[in-house]
Amino acid sequence: MLSFLQSLPSPIAQGMIWGIMAIGVYITYKVLDVADLTVDGTLATGGAVLVVLTTAGVNIYIAMIVAFLAGCLAGFVTGLLHTRFGIPAILAGILTQLALYSLNLRIMSARANVPINWRMYDLIVSSRTDVLPKTILICAIFIVAIIGILYWFFGTELGHSVRATGCNQAMARANGINTDSRKIIGLIISNGIVALSGGLLAQFSGAADVNMGRGAIVIGLAAVIISEVVFGKIFKNFALRLLGVVFGGIIYYIVISIVLKLGLNANDLKLLSACVVALFLGLPYWKSKLSHKKAKKEKKGEKVNA
């Protein structure tokens, strides 16, 4: 038990970084109502850009900003494919993600894994035990800042129009909102945040890997769903919901570390994640089916007006 508690800071820090990623997923999946698969590629792009720039001697904060912008660009491309090429959002995201795989290898000069050593560079986060408290603090600062900015943005006229687009496109257009441009804006913000978290993750794990983003969307969705199940009833405010998503990421990683401690093969993790997410995505559907059946029974054959 004691050893488990002692090992907690690491999954907490990791969960916080993935929680930032999950905020990005929340913006597309919940606010914009689009399942954006670009993020699997964007996360690695963020990591790759950060590591390559930092090892080339660029200041770590500037490298973080560039990683963020690279993510924004990826989101922009998905947005263009979706709105200007008329490709369904899911497929548009898959296309960008695929293209990013090659691009990420280009960024890393054809290496699949580029390490970054904390001894040689001023990294702001790391998984080393002695700096874990500092890592958690820095992640917390990032989270508070990101949530603050997003809370402000989605309260502005422009932010309102993005939310309206995600909620009801017919209504948005009837009120003069260019829904195409709003979708692009949402995708840009989301992927920028995901790339930023990729930059943090690369520092944390000491390397950028071309496969580091594989399944990121599923982990992001898991965090979103966990937060809905656990905090859905108490966190109503938008800022609190985003915070709940971060908590969702942390819970996810604590659970994963427990499962691993119980002796599960690390290779089976993705299977487990997929099953858990599928289960929770299915729950509301089954629930509505069940209540529908109930309603039918209660009406006893009475015709229900559509």
Binding site: G155, T156, E157, L158, G159, H160, S161, G176, I177
Partner: peptide, 12 residues
């Protein structure tokens, strides 16, 4: 705000 620029001012 129908027909007007939507800026970064407060939404309401």
């Amino acid at each position: 705000r129908r027909g007007k620029m939507r800026t970064l001012r407060n939404g309401v």
